[in-house]
Write a protein that binds this DNA or RNA. Sequence first.
DNA 1: GCCATATAGTACCATATTAGTCCTGTTTCA
DNA 2: TGAAACAGGACTAATATGGTACTATATGGC
Lengths: 148, 148
Amino acid sequence: MLRISKLTDYAIVVMVELGESPGAVLSAQALAERSHLELPTVSKVLKLLARHGLVRSYRGAHGGYRVTRPTAEISVAEIIGAIEGPIAMTECSVEVGLCSQEHVCGLRSNWQRISAAVARAMEEVSLAEMSRPARPSEPGLRIATLNA
Amino acid sequence: MLRISKLTDYAIVVMVELGESPGAVLSAQALAERSHLELPTVSKVLKLLARHGLVRSYRGAHGGYRVTRPTAEISVAEIIGAIEGPIAMTECSVEVGLCSQEHVCGLRSNWQRISAAVARAMEEVSLAEMSRPARPSEPGLRIATLNA
DNA sequence: GCCATATAGTACCATATTAGTCCTGTTTCA
DNA sequence: TGAAACAGGACTAATATGGTACTATATGGC
């Protein structure tokens, strides 16, 4: 568990696909075919990505989408953020007052710190890196913890 | 988003509470009161934790639960794992064959690497650390990424 | 100017997951 | 032997998610 949502998953796939042709304007239809996903789903994802400025949309005939930045400058965190909102492991990591137990719990500061660390990790993974398989030889991601 | 489930959240709270009295055997009822949670919920969580060996249960009158190890030796990852199963950001990070798009996707190796990194981070946060508020001065968690 | 194409926004429904509760059975202690 | 307490599983209700559809708006070509 600790899953990203399916929509987010699709968003990454679509962004990878878009990133393959940085200059071209691709329609939602074309992207759906290339991604092996349904058009309405791809469409929904693209709207969210456009609203957050990760892709630029072109309306009308011959319209479509293209990435606004080189894939090396787009992070996985941004894509997750566009679809799901802020990366936070618990309600209370987002902001104060969201959890009714806040005054008796005391875990908030730790959850905030953990969430921030995970967010930072996702920020350091670019779309360009996602586009090519991780080599087995490559050292894995390392996440420094509370004491680091 | 990227949330842990509420049940997992409760599990951490309950474990923190149990960890405060390492020797004592506390009933689900007592833990529910101390945690400000409902008994059935606390009960459910404790059963899962017991099944995974994180707490030892004692049945019968004066029964209850106690932690099986010092809190410094119990990781947040273990608790998440007990309630939610393996830490994985996507279906495909768990094992091959879970995602129908596997042969056309190519993102699997990267998701596995990212999931592993997040899991490792959670393994490095102990219940003892969760029990006391993170000091603001404390450097945050850092998660090294694909290139690190 | 008009029509075809394509995205924007929103609202909706169906389904899956999660949370929460309850019941029945078993164990232990007094 | 009875009360206290956990084990396991089944069930219900609430929520979240995924997926779809509809209307409006913009663009480009004939």
